[in-house]
Simulated scan of single mutants.
Amino acid sequence: MAILALPRDTATLGRRLPQLFVGLVLYGVSMGLMYRAELGLDPWDVFHQGVSRLVGLSIGTVVILTGAAVLLLWIPLRQRPGIGTVSNVLVLGVAMDRTLALLPAQHALAPRIVLLAVGILLNGLATGLYIGAELGAGPRDGLMTGLHRRTGWSLRLLRTGLELTVLLVGVLLGGQAGVGTVAYALSIGPLAQFFLHRCTPARLRPRKE
Rank of each mutant, 00 (worst) to 15 (best):
L100K: 08
L100M: 10
A101F: 05
L102N: 10
L102Q: 13
L103H: 12
P104C: 06
P104E: 04
P104I: 04
A105I: 07
Q106W: 13
Q106V: 15
H107K: 15
A108F: 08
L109W: 11
L109D: 08
L109Y: 12
A110V: 09
A110T: 12
P111E: 12
R112I: 08
L116F: 09
L116W: 10
A117P: 00
V118G: 10
V118C: 13
G119F: 01
I120K: 05
I120E: 01
L121Q: 00
L122G: 11
L122W: 05
N123H: 14
L125R: 07
A126G: 02
T127P: 00
T127Q: 12
L129H: 04
Y130N: 02
I131W: 09
I131C: 11
G132A: 05
G132L: 02
G132Y: 01
A133L: 04
A133E: 01
E134P: 00
E134Q: 15
E134D: 14
L135E: 00
G136W: 00
G136S: 03
A137R: 15
P139L: 07
P139W: 05
D141L: 08
G142R: 10
M144W: 10
T145G: 04
T145V: 11
T145N: 01
T145A: 07
G146I: 00
L147S: 11
L147N: 06
L147Y: 07
H148Q: 15
H148Y: 07
R149C: 05
R149A: 15
R149G: 12
T151Y: 08
T151I: 05
T151N: 03
G152C: 06
W153A: 14
W153Q: 13
W153E: 11
L155A: 07
L155C: 03
R156T: 13
L158K: 05
L158A: 02
R159E: 06
R159S: 09
T160H: 05
L162I: 14
